[in-house]
Design a binder for these strands. Structure first.
Length: 730
DNA sequence: AGCAACCGTGTTTTT
DNA sequence: CACGGTTGCT
């Protein structure tokens, strides 16, 4: 990128007063502008750093911004408030949550904690988990929270909604009992706080005079409200985003926030950053064609001074295995010609499940790789167990985490006992921890009661250690005193060995935290841990090939990108076939992925792939049809070479079935209706659980067929035909 | 209480 | 295929 800012960037930097909307196209130097803008405000406009609040979505983005501002401003940068929405929420709540009836020491429940609690609610309400799957209830509750909908306002207009409203209500009650908040609350409660407590709002408004929001296209309603409240009359709000890169609709992101910003904040300045510094002309042109078809997007013309570059390669292999072999072989080939680190390549896929076949091939070729967003360190069982101990110590009301550790490691306190304790707790209105001394009154045998007393004693002892020992040492003590380490050692398995290593690593994490923080505390440590994602914990990955989902790829860039699985059903994903909005989002996801590439872009797919153990034949992705043919180099692996000796399949022993008829045509094949579809729209069907209903819609073929059925009792449901057990009534 | 074997079920994306 | 959840056995 050029050393100087271009005129639009300059304007974006210098427009500091009033509402500003910056459309920042892919690779247009957005972060640079944000950083310079803050520096400019401080250095040229004399604005105090602590009056500036910059919000991002990921810790990584926040950290990067902070680092770059520090490079310009030095110490002064420390006072600029740069954080994610969620950490900002935590910070606001730690200070003020008592005004909302929670205790200061509240615990943050992650989604698995949330799921546990929801399951408990479902059970208590006697709801059939077959109909009310915890997952769907969770997503309904989350969606409600994103929309700032409280349990009492929850839409109850159908059978499902009515019950979910009950679950939501109970769930929220339980959160409060446990003095706990979930991720949604981290946004919802601050909004409530500011709306219900004008003096608090006034304080924040007085202090935070300049607001900046990154990735504004991804804000949900709660985030929007929060920002709008803080902006107040002063309206010194600068939002930066790109509607073409809005890919979090499913998580509540509302693209209208950015598209209607001008209406929402009249007289705002609109700045478009349209010069791309990242990609070749060819890559930009191809990506541009994919999003062009989206209606209602903000017109932008992304351009670049860079060379046209190489053509985009579109490869089709006979199977997913060949696809993986091709990609890995191609990486090796490029590395022989060019001096590129493995970290300058990347493989992108739509769904996590797709990574496996590439991992197999990479292992076979001894090529080191890293999966972005695999199992999170903090999601590992042993880590969650120890963290549960820590949460309980930080917040004694947290019965959910207490329950988790009560018998971990095993100490003879079983489910039956726990249930008795919980019953007593409910009767007396105590927390689970508070009932421990009364075990014998809960009808628990004296032997077990003794074990409970020992556990209770353990917690007390740990509490004293907590105050006397430095945090890292204390965590180690906890692991030992609780018997956790011992029980793992006793297992004598390789798995236990690796768990022990993880625990060691956890102690290291705590130690690192202590050196990097001015006032380390258990509570602050837990807050931080609750909010980190995988993307944030960047190790030294320069020697490994990165593999990631398209969603994780946003914001990153690579010299060479392999965009794999370009097939109907995968990208666009089968679940997005219903509505135009969802299909448009798939387009944007494609656009985001393509625009990550600086020099080389490969799009690949396969004619046949294994899914859940059986074969699937997908058509080429419709998005491939949008590519300008003159900048695409087509590579098809010839049918004849399957059993032969090609660069990619020398030692394969692929079981190869009869080729399907569709192969006769190597070009994208027009999608047509499946004549063997037994599920005709309008037909009546019976489901073993949901009862009788009418088919409303049907999509996909054979194993992928999904049908939408309107049931008279439980409302509309989408079913996978293969699994649905439907009886067709005619 | 703890484990093994089984079953049914379902697959997007995650701060 | 793979996982979570449940059952049934020791």
């Amino acid at each position: 990128m050029s050393a100087r800012l271009n005129p639009e960037q300059q304007r974006a930097v210098e427009t500091t007063e009033g509402p500003v909307l910056i459309f920042a196209g892919a690779g247009s130097g957005k972060t640079r502008v944000l950083v310079h803008r803050i520096a400019y405000m401080v250095q040229e406009r004399g604005i105090s750093p602590w009056q500036i609040f910059a919000v991002t979505f990921t810790n990584k983005a926040a950290g990067e911004m902070r680092e770059r501002i520090e490079r310009i401003l030095g110490e002064g940068a420390k006072d600029v408030w740069i954080s994610t929405f969620h950490s900002a929420g935590v910070r606001i709540l730690r200070r003020h949550i008592e005004k909302l009836g929670y205790g200061k020491a509240f615990v943050i429940y992650d989604d698995s904690d949330q799921m546990t609690l929801i399951k408990k609610c479902l059970e208590e309400l006697g709801l059939n988990p077959k109909i009310f799957s915890p997952r769907s209830v969770q997503s309904r509750i989350d969606a409600a929270k994103n929309e700032l909908i409280q349990p009492k306002d929850f839409s109850q207009d159908d059978f499902f909604g009515e019950r979910v409203a009950k679950v939501y209500e109970l769930y929220q009650k339980k959160l409060i009992e446990n003095n706990a908040v979930d991720f949604g609350d981290l946004l919802l409660l601050p909004v409530r706080l500011l709306e219900e407590h004008p003096q608090v709002l006034a304080e924040f408004r007085h202090r935070l005079r300049y607001l900046m929001v990154d990735e504004y296209q991804d804000t949900n309603h709660a985030q929007y409200r929060l920002i709008k409240l803080l902006a107040g009359e002063r309206r010194n709000l600068c939002v930066v985003g790109d509607d073409d890169q809005s890919i979090y609709r499913w998580r509540g992101a509302d693209i209208r926030n950015i598209l209607e910003f001008e209406k929402d904040f009249p007289n705002c300045q609109v700045i478009k950053l349209e010069q791309n510094y990242r990609s070749t002309k060819n890559i930009l042109a191809a990506a541009g064609e994919v999003v062009k078809a989206i209606a209602g997007r903000c017109e932008k013309t992304l351009w670049t001074d860079n060379d046209a570059g190489e053509k985009i390669v579109y490869f089709t292999g006979p199977t997913d295995k060949h696809e993986a072999q091709y990609v890995v072989a191609e990486i090796q080939k490029i590395r022989e010609k060019m001096d590129l680190k493995l970290s300058e390549f990347a493989i992108f896929y739509r769904t996590n499940a797709q990574s496996r076949i590439f991992e197999d091939e990479l292992r076979k070729q001894n090529m080191p790789y890293v999966i972005f967003g695999g199992v999170r360190f903090y999601d590992r069982m042993e880590i969650k167990d120890i963290l549960a101990y820590l949460w309980v110590l930080a917040n004694p009301a947290d019965s959910l985490h207490l329950r988790r550790i009560l018998n971990v490691p095993a100490r003879g306190i079983g489910d039956v006992t726990v249930e008795k304790l919980e019953k007593l707790a409910a009767e007396r209105g105590l927390s689970l921890l508070e009932t421990l001394p009364f075990a014998s009154e809960a009808g628990i045998a004296s032997g077990t009661a003794k074990k409970i007393a020992t556990f209770h004693q353990l917690i007390q002892t740990l509490k004293t250690y907590q105050t006397t020992e430095p945090l890292d040492h204390f965590v180690k003590t906890l692991m030992e005193q609780s018997g956790y380490i011992e029980s793992l050692k006793a297992e004598q398995t390789i798995e236990a060995e690796s768990r022990l290593e993880n625990l060691e690593e956890l102690v290291n994490v705590v130690a690192d935290y202590m050196t990097s923080t001015e006032e380390p505390s258990l509570e602050a440590f837990l807050d931080q841990v609750a909010l980190v994602s995988d993307l944030d914990q960047a190790a030294d990955r320069s020697l490994s090939l990165p593999l990631m989902t398209l969603h994780l790829a946003k914001g990153l860039e690579f010299e060479v990108v392999f965009f794999v699985g370009m097939e109907e059903g995968i990208l666009p994903h089968i679940r997005s076939f219903d509505t135009l909005e969802e299909m448009d989002e798939e387009r944007r996801i494609t656009y985001v992925g393509m625009t990550r590439a600086k020099k080389h872009l490969y799009l690949t797919n396969a004619l046949k792939r294994r899914v859940f153990g059986n074969d699937q034949y997908n058509l080429p992705s419709r998005f491939l049809e949008d590519l300008p043919q003159d900048i695409v180099q087509r590579i098809e692996m010839p049918y004849e070479s399957f059993g032969g000796r090609t660069a990619w399949n020398q030692d394969r022993d692929d079981d190869w079935d009869e080729a399907p008829a569709s192969w006769a045509s190597p070009k994208p094949i027009p999608r047509k209706e499946d004549p063997n579809n037994p599920y005709k729209i309008g037909a009546k069907v019976r489901h073993p659980i949901f009862g009788v209903g009418t088919i409303r819609d049907c999509e996909g073929n054979e194993d992928n067929r999904k049908i939408t059925v309107a049931f008279s009792e439980v409302g509309q449901k989408k079913l996978i035909a293969k699994f649905s057990n439907l009886t067709i009534l005619g």
